[in-house]
């Protein structure tokens, strides 16, 4: 595990080079490319806000801010996992031909989607005054929220990348699971609308721990309580550890499955 991390640190150049290549391919080197990458999530946010705020009778602007600040980290998690699942199989060409630190591949997937997420947050901040939502001092904790989320997502990414090497249909399974998980997570709906009987179970969803770190400071201007940070910290370390340890143990076997 430590070696895995040292290798990552040592291969900073490789990381940046692969990120550049992938960004180049995604955005096609044009300014318009970036717009395309952001248009889809923005349209999703707009249409979901319109539909669900009228369904729930919740004020559109307030709902929009709430949904937006949960949807960006959720999309980061979802897109990174799917992207990472493809990272080893899709780059089998490299993995089977040179001796390289393989963990860089899923981590590049996380970084790539991290850039999108940061861009998404910046757009949210730009829109907030237009929606009449005030900026809060508590929003200064968002970098910490993002860091913890990124750590957890990196762990999940390493798990997904391996799983797809050994089971090629894992990606489809993951896609469906993420779709369902989205509706069970408080992104579209607010946790306080949940019936009291369901509250204790709701906390078992690890996504809740991370979503709170964004939703509380942005929408309510509340600094997340210590328990929230601790819970997210425990999940993040557990996932990072699980991803890193299994990756270290399995990476010699990838060649035979690719």
């Amino acid at each position: 595990m430590m070696r895995l991390w040292k290798e990552v640190a040592a291969s900073r150049d490789l990381f940046i080079e692969l990120l550049k290549v992938q960004m180049d391919q995604r955005y096609n080197g044009s300014a318009l490319g970036v717009i395309w990458a952001l248009a889809m999530p923005l349209l999703t946010i707009l249409s979901f806000s319109l539909i669900f705020s009228s369904l729930s009778g919740w004020n559109l602007a307030d709902y929009g801010v709430y949904f937006f600040c949960g949807y960006v980290p959720w999309t980061f998690f979802q897109a990174s996992s799917l992207h990472a699942a493809e990272s080893l199989v899709g780059n089998a060409f490299y993995v089977t031909r040179i001796s390289m630190p393989k963990q860089v591949l899923p981590l590049v997937a996380v970084a790539l989607n991290g850039i999108d997420a940061v861009a998404g947050m910046v757009i949210l901040f730009a829109l907030m005054p237009l929606l009449g939502a005030p900026y809060h001092l508590s929003m200064l904790c968002l970098p910490a929220s993002a860091l913890l989320t990124a750590a957890a997502v990196a762990g999940v990414a390493m798990l997904c990348a391996q799983a797809n090497v050994f089971f090629r249909d894992f990606r489809y399974l993951l896609n469906s699971a993420l779709f369902l998980w989205f509706f069970f997570s408080p992104v579209l709906w607010r946790p306080d609308t949940l019936s009291p009987a369901l509250r204790p179970f709701y906390r078992l969803n690890p996504a809740v721990a991370f979503l709170e770190l964004f939703q509380l400071p942005v929408r309510l201007g509340i600094l997340p309580p210590v328990e929230a940070w601790l819970l997210a910290g425990v999940w993040a370390s557990a996932l990072l550890l699980a991803g890193g340890l299994t990756f270290a143990a399995n990476q010699k076997r990838f060649y035979y499955y690719l």
Partner: peptide, 14 residues
């Protein structure tokens, strides 16, 4: 571009 990717993949300095 491939030359730079090659360098990175093989752990050469930038």
């Amino acid at each position: 571009q491939n030359a730079f990717l090659y360098a990175a993949l093989n752990g050469l300095e930038r």
